[in-house]
Nucleic acid binder design. Structure first.
Lengths: 258, 258
DNA sequence: AAGTGGTCTAGACCACTCG
DNA sequence: GAGTGGTCTAGACCACTTT
């Protein structure tokens, strides 16, 4: 049963619109496989490149993702609200919930980390600047991926000054309950202010692979600089670069009017 | 002088990499025209579709934008830092700088608005919910575009409760020095808290056109809800949806650790 | 072996801009 | 009219997954 196109819009645009309607309308739910390119060709009477261009739009929107040799699949939809006000609550991470998860609320329990990798190295100039240290300073680098079920939710790379975190459990793969921030507070540091810098761009090949994203689908990147103090000394305690599939997140911030 | 490709990567990826290197290296500055598709074909010995696919990558990255019949042009680069802490300072907008510009600092003077459009209408359910009113409530809708030189920097659509803003200069195209927020404060309202919800997606056709973006290049969208009070009454005074080309902005927020 | 998506080619016609 | 990018076709070969 071929579906003729109206011709008011470019064919690839019309095909994308119709497929999108089937996805957001629920006819094609999360995990469902779209008709193959060959099937879409006969369905819409178009060439393969036209069909592929329609699919490219849906991929850029984050609605679908293709798997070589298997097909094109509908992605999970719906944005998770991540509120800074809920994230930086000392009592939460002292109760065993790390700062990276405290804002996830009820969804927290399903979240798990994998690919945890920790090392101590000399920071390049850009990274050292973020932690307010001279280039070449030693830092603890913590890298991990968070998944919800089998869907990757975020990548995070953190840098902590080695003179502060080195030798503590914050420099081990399992930083313990409440995460590395809880360990630093146990060592007498007190987190005071967190600055977050939000940008958006399309992912690198590696990021797209790790997050199960299409290459053209946008990413939210948060550069988080956490400052703390101990015995009158103020230091940057943590710089983290956090990468999130844009389709899955909304970041919430509150500011007082001064 | 053809430039042979190595073959380690897909041809379109290699071509994109080489063109990107010429742009970020400064050989092709902002406003410069790239070689035409025909010239790139002979330069790299590839077919037209391959060359176009390479250009599509650079478009999605926001590095270039194409103009039908004219060519492909390098976009202005560099992100503007927009800090919430600088934006919501009462003294700034009472000094004549509106909340939408107070964080732009020295760059403010060059900024100008165009396509200003103001109307009063009944809010749909979603918009009414944002301003904490029942569906169908009357609201003042302010729409405008901000440009820096000839480059559009942002789109903004604001909704203010008509029972508050109606009849004041906040409901006129030129809301006066300091913008509509200054007018509401003159009417006795005092802004207290601003919540911002940040998301990212690819633009609609209209958004891409108004912002001079490529269709696949990501957009940052800020939903801003400003709350205020007067005589003990607390109200949402302004809901704005602000659209920014991602390539041009980084949003900065600070949070206290509690 | 069959089916899927990924890459690439050669060619066509169209819409837009500029001299 | 010449040059540019936008759309579309038909066909080919490859890499990957599944049966």
């Amino acid at each position: 049963m071929p579906e003729p196109l109206s011709g008011d819009l470019p064919a690839y645009q019309e095909i994308a619109d119709r497929l999108r309607a089937r996805i957001v309308g629920g006819a094609l739910g999360a995990g469902a496989r779209l008709p193959s390119e060959q099937e879409l060709r006969t369905l819409y009477g178009s060439s393969r490149e036209t069909v592929r261009k329609a699919l490219a739009i849906l991929k850029a929107e984050g609605l679908v993702v293709s798997q070589h040799g298997r097909g094109v699949f509908v992605q999970r939809r719906g944005r998770v609200r991540r509120s800074a006000a809920d994230r930086y609550v000392r009592s939460a991470w002292h109760a065993g919930i790390s700062a990276g998860q405290a804002d996830l609320g009820d969804r927290g329990p399903e979240l798990r980390a994998d690919m945890v990798r920790v090392e101590t190295l000399e920071a390049d100039a850009a990274t050292a600047g973020r932690v307010d240290l001279p280039a070449g300073s030693r830092v603890v680098r913590r890298e991990r991926r968070y998944l919800q079920g089998d869907r990757p939710l975020q990548l995070a790379v953190s840098f902590l000054p080695a003179d502060i975190a080195g030798g503590t459990r914050a420099a081990e793969p399992d930083s313990g309950p409440g995460g590395s921030w809880a360990r630093l507070e146990e060592a007498g540091w007190r987190f005071t202010v967190v600055r977050e810098e939000v940008e958006s761009r399309i992912p690198t090949f590696d990021e797209a692979t790790l997050l199960h994203m299409s290459p053209g689908s946008p990413l939210l990147v948060v550069h988080r600089i956490a400052t703390g103090e101990r015995l009158g000394e103020t230091r940057v305690l943590d710089y983290s670069a956090i990468s999130l599939p844009a389709e899955l997140h909304v970041l919430v911030y509150e500011s007082a009017v001064r």
